[in-house]
Design a protein around this nucleic acid. Structure first.
Length: 623
RNA sequence: GCUCCCGUAGUUUAGCUUGGACAGAACGUCGGUUUCCUAAACCGAAUAUCGCAGGUUCAAAUCCUGCCGGGGGCACCA
């Protein structure tokens, strides 16, 4: 549990109190870093007051200036065109920071220990993860990291559909096309995704009878046919383990792996169905074309069929049951077992059908809030799930569909994969047709491009050290690119663009971090707490202001589930530091100035490191 | 047909929730900075009808309406 206070709040509470409003009311009136107009921040309340009360702008602004004048946190106030421009009292700002600073700076207790389940990635277990899944995993993992920083207790789950057609396709390949269950020298997820899956889908075109074979396999899975299940489970587990290797490489970890087949085996739907009938959330249609179906009436009046007239449940039904499990809205629970220890040392648990193998396990479900990272094409189904959960829980459970748009390929990159069409700005990926970019392949290409640069810059380092640096830079770059923009915007991937080294946000941030480390290494001195030096330079003030605002930036990002707030901050902060570096010598400074600047560098490093960690950027000491 | 999302410099984009001061950046382009803590950096210049048209407002990239362009979704499929 993080105990750090949000020091921005301390200051803003004081300002709000002086203005006679609540901190929430103050928020929209605050503008930060208004340097070009004047001030460290500006208050726009007079613009509103002037309108509401019919007083002249100047009068309203002057009144606010008067109200703020006694604040210990503000050093200077000016009014201009109705804006009240304020400069902080940097002595006070500095002592606030000094009191609050530690390795976890930026972490707050905003979440008050609330348990939140974050589910992400959820790739089908028949192929390697591609750049589309990468967007999902990067967003999900960064959200988890973010909410942990704000004092939430996060349970990360991922879900695998081990009963679907895509899995059956691969079994068709093994059983009926005589393909081996593995191939030497090729990662298993690549083997199935790149070779088996695409080949089977080709074969369907020339031999439609294979489709009937697939239906038989799906039936066999449904009926619990032991021979088939053994092949399926074996393949599924091995493919998932291969996928997890890629995800670990990217620094993505989970607490629990859930299987669709287990949701079915534990008959969660039956339990959910009974409860939904009891509470009359779903109704049996007695006439019309939906006669005999159980339907849920959506808020917009549309009636969504949940159970077909033949008594079988539609796909969303299972999603509803699963969501009810997450929120502890039904009695059933899985059995769990320890599965693998991940690279970060944390145990990855999995659900199990083995009812005797009960182990003492952490509490996974019964969360009030769940965040489900699922792409935007499933918006409609997710809306149904959310509405059912809202109604059933009486608003007590908060189910969030965190939607993001697909990753598509640029025309150039698509052409590289053999797809060409005029007049298209981008192309959707397709696992079936083999049109996708695998995460492993991309990561390797990126690393290769970076390692040359690294070697040419670090003659004193070994090849191994250069490769490690390049690996970290490749991972950081990829993850940063996946979260730096609005998740609702389609991300058009272009291979050439991706392999360009300049213009990469993460590399810029990494460079800045390395620079900070370099200074501290060269200083070779124990750094004391900051003592105020006589006069702060422009750049020193800018850095202090960034540092001061950081906890609030993190909190804002968490409140809005907005990662771009963090990436923008990290990039701007890096820029401010590099500006500082240019005109403010640290090691060559003397006495008080030197020790103050060393403290400032050390503190800046903590801030940038903590921001980077949220984004999945691996901080480097050297590059 | 109904519905949701996106549309900001050549390119990638921030700002839109909560309307406020000349719309911030980055890449690319052009020019400059290295006997000095990492030049994967820094400084400067040029580049924007904020998709279009109305409306609300003292004030609109931001809110409302309509239209245009691009994409998604609307199964007794999974």
């Amino acid at each position: 549990m993080n105990k750090n206070p949000n020091i921005v709040k301390t200051v803003n509470d004081d300002i709000a109190k002086r203005l006679g409003i609540t901190p929430e009311e103050l928020r929209p009136f605050l503008m930060y870093k208004t340097y070009k107009y004047g001030g460290d921040f500006s208050i726009t309340k007079a613009l509103r007051d002037s309108k509401v009360e019919g007083v002249p702008l100047d009068t309203a602004a002057e009144r606010i200036k008067k109200q703020l004048e006694g604040s210990p946190f503000i050093g200077k106030i000016e009014t201009a065109n109705g804006y009240v421009n304020c400069w902080y009292n940097y002595d006070r700002l500095l002592s606030l920071i000094v009191d609050a600073i530690n390795e976890n700076y930026g972490a707050t207790d905003y979440g008050k220990g609330e348990r939140v389940m974050v589910e992400h990635t959820s790739v089908n277990p028949n192929k390697a993860i591609h750049i589309g899944h990468l967007r999902n995993a990067s967003i999900g993992d960064s959200l988890s990291r973010l909410l942990r920083k704000t004092g939430h207790e996060i349970i990360v789950t991922t879900y695998t559909d081990d009963t679907g057609a895509q899995v059956a396709d691969n079994i068709v390949g093994i059983k009926f096309l005589g393909m081996p269950a593995e191939e030497k020298g090729i990662k298993l997820d690549h083997y199935f995704g790149d070779k088996v899956y695409t080949k089977v889908n080709e074969a369907y075109k020339t031999d439609p009878s294979l489709l009937e074979k697939r239906s038989l396999i799906l039936k066999a899975i449904e009926n619990g046919d032991r021979d088939i299940l053994k092949i399926v489970d074996d393949m599924v587990e091995k493919v998932i383990l291969a996928q997890l290797e890629t995800l670990e490489r990217l620094g993505v970890y989970y607490d629990l792996m859930n299987y669709e087949s287990h949701i079915l085996a534990y008959k969660f739907w039956d339990a959910a169905f009974n409860l939904l009938k009891e509470k009359e959330e779903i109704k049996l249609e007695t006439k019309g074309e939906k006669k005999g179906c159980w339907v849920f009436k959506k808020a917009d009046g549309e009636e969504k069929i949940i159970v077909r007239s033949d008594g079988t449940v539609v796909y969303v039904g299972k999603d509803i049951a699963y969501a009810m499990w997450k929120h502890g809205l039904m009695n059933g629970d899985f059995k769990y077992r320890k599965w693998i220890t991940q690279k970060n040392g944390k145990m990855l648990w999995t659900t199990t059908l083995d009812r005797d193998g009960t182990e003492k396990h952490p509490k996974f479900n019964y969360v009030k809030r769940s965040i489900n990272v699922i792409d935007i094409t499933q918006k409609y189904e997710q809306e149904v799930v959310k509405e059912v959960i809202d109604k059933f829980s009486g608003g007590k459970s908060e189910y969030t569909h965190y939607e993001y748009a697909v990753v598509a390929l640029s025309p150039k990159t698509a052409e590289m994969l053999g797809v060409k069409e005029e007049d298209k700005e981008f192309f959707r990926m397709s696992g079936r047709k083999g049109i996708y970019i695998n995460a492993d392949d991309l990561l390797n290409k990126l690393k290769q491009a970076i390692v040359q640069e690294t070697k040419s810059r670090n003659k004193d380092l070994s090849d191994k050290e250069c490769e490690d640096i390049a690996e970290s830079l490749a991972v950081s770059t990829l993850r940063y690119e996946m979260v730096r923009t609005d998740p609702k915007k389609i991300l058009v991937f272009d291979m050439d663009e991706a392999l360009k080294l300049e213009s990469k946000g993460a590399i810029y941030i990494e460079y800045t971090l390395s620079r900070m480390s370099g200074i501290l290494r060269n200083a070779d001195e124990n750094i004391k707490d900051a003592s105020r030096k006589k006069e702060l330079t422009k750049q020193e003030k800018k850095l202090l202001l960034d540092i001061f605002l950081f906890p609030d930036v993190v909190e804002t990002a968490a409140r809005n589930l907005d990662l771009t707030v963090i990436s923008n901050f990290a990039s701007e902060f890096s820029s401010d530091f590099n500006e500082f570096y240019r005109d403010n010598p640290v090691i060559k400074a003397e006495g008080e100035e030197r020790s103050f600047r060393l403290w400032l560098v050390k503190t800046s490093k903590i801030v940038l490191k903590n921001a980077s960690e949220i984004l999945g950027i691996i901080p480097l000491e050297k590059m």
